[in-house]
Design a protein around this nucleic acid. Structure first.
Lengths: 144, 144
DNA sequence: ATTATATAGGATAAAAAAGTCCTTTATTTT
DNA sequence: AAAATAAAGGACTTTTTTATCCTATATAAT
């Protein structure tokens, strides 16, 4: 569904969101540990997300990553599109270069429906809305 | 969603199904052309599907690929699992090694629902059921 | 029997995705 | 000012996916 990079990006961002609601910052090392993912790879991903404004960062001692109010309000759909592009939402299920109502692949209508429900779900979830579940351990970002 | 290999596999199999309902056989070349895909790659994919009984083949002049009644009755889900495995149906949306009701990722429930609808759709579509749409040009396996 | 045809099979190449390592830059603390 | 800390950046490696090529094998037609 999502690329590995995108899965990590979502989990990392949710982790940062949860840890920084009171303004504190988290290091790459802590994030990587917190979501059980390769540290250097996460560093690369966050570097890119930071450059593009999806996460905020500060260098030096007591530095790290955090989310400003703007980033907290972003939807999962925004993040997915930023990382994987929009192919999940607009591409053809069978890989046709052109696939539309006018010239549909055999499963066009069914996929249209599924894609729409994926999109709805991702658009209606904000990055900052999982803090409570995570804190109460009703949801997880790595296996325990 | 699906790997390229799987997309080609589905399209190729649908093409074969349509072309061979009256017992005729189609060559790799014709299939590759009919679904606009790389010939040698399609050959590899069909070789593998043939070995595993998802398509039938005959060597020599007038040979080619075809589907027996058994293969025609197979669901898209069978084929997808054969090619891509079952990760689409059982894996975690955020890539957690363990993700379940007991230890869910933040979007576990929503994904469960989406996965189920994908699975339903694929299980309820038989490879042989698209012939008529394809013939009447109400559905396509390549852009025209 | 010979030739032509078409899949089977194995080796290899190219491209993309995933992951690692090392140096630089900015910032804070002492 | 110096030392320590943490992200930024770039180069590189590994793995996986996608794709190609060449030879062998089976079969049909002549």
């Amino acid at each position: 569904m999502f690329s590995k990079t995108c899965e990590y990006a979502i989990r990392a961002t949710m982790y940062i969101a949860q840890k920084t609601k009171d303004g504190q910052k988290v290091s790459v090392k802590e994030i990587a540990h917190g979501i059980d993912s390769p540290e250097h790879f996460i560093a690369k991903i966050l570097q890119d997300l930071s450059r593009r404004g999806y996460v905020q960062s500060a260098k030096g001692p007591n530095g790290g990553f955090f989310l400003d109010s703007n980033s907290l309000q972003r939807s999962l759909a925004d993040l997915v599109i930023a990382v994987d592009g929009d192919k999940l939402f607009v591409g053809c299920g069978l890989g046709l270069k052109q696939c539309s109502e006018l010239q549909p692949c055999p499963i066009h209508d069914e996929f249209q429906h599924i894609r729409k429900s994926i999109r709805n779900m991702l658009e209606n979830s904000k990055l900052g809305e999982f803090n409570e579940q995570l804190e109460q351990k009703l949801a997880f970002l790595k296996r325990v």
